[in-house]
């Protein structure tokens, strides 16, 4: 039995909405464990930068290596769970981590920050911008987390310069952790 044009239009609209919702929620589900992992890394890294500034450089190198390796295995695990090529998926996550790591250090090399706070603020601002832009296409929760992280970073830099690293451990790392739990509940 043929169907009306209105029914066809409604069905196509339902299909588009279901696909969009599935895509957004899948992104939240996959992103959540990475936010939690990097939230912990930020809490430890920024705390270390505050209490032992001379250890911050090597400390962050080790923490970033742990984070990139962890992201690889988290990516593999989520792909295995979904029955898709897990090795490729894990590689993409770690490749993204290495790319960001290289970008941040290349920027440091060229721009040469003048203070520890600038070194600490730049990666946080970069991630805030990435989450905000991703959210424009992939769901409002990414954008909210990006904006909150960006505001926290700028506010801490402007108002709490002496304790900026401690602020970033609590507010920046905390924002990532809360975002991870928030995405998981979506």
């Amino acid at each position: 039995m043929p169907i009306s044009t209105q029914e066809a239009a409604e069905a196509l609209s339902d299909i588009a909405l279901a696909q969009q919702r599935a895509s957004i929620l899948r992104g939240y589900e996959r992103g959540a464990p990475h936010f939690v992992l990097w939230g912990f890394i930020w809490v430890v890294g920024y705390s270390l930068s505050d209490v032992a500034p001379n250890m911050a450089g090597p400390g962050w190198l080790v923490l970033d290596a742990i984070g990139i390796t962890g992201s690889y295995f988290l990516g593999r695990a989520s792909a295995t769970n979904a029955c898709i090529a897990s090795k490729d998926y894990g590689r993409r996550f770690s490749a993204a981590g290495v790319t960001l790591f290289a970008f941040i250090f290349a920027t440091y090399f060229i721009m040469k920050p003048h203070s520890a706070a600038q070194y600490g603020a730049f990666p946080a601002l970069l991630m805030a911008a990435i989450y905000t832009v991703v959210g424009i296409w992939r769901g409002i929760r990414w954008t909210v987390s990006g904006v909150v992280l960006g505001v926290f970073t700028v506010a801490g830099f402007a108002l709490l310069r002496e304790h900026f690293m401690l602020w970033m451990a609590a507010a920046g790392g905390g924002a990532l952790l809360l975002t991870g739990f928030w995405l998981r509940r979506a």
Binding site: A11, D14, I15, A16, A18, Q19, Q20, R21, A22, S23, R26, N81, A82, C83, I84
Partner: peptide, 17 residues
């Protein structure tokens, strides 16, 4: 229709819980 559209948004052979 919603179920099919949702599954179609995944990668080929990708499963969802």
């Amino acid at each position: 229709l919603k179920i099919m559209a949702t599954l179609n948004a995944l990668s080929p052979r990708e499963a969802i819980e």
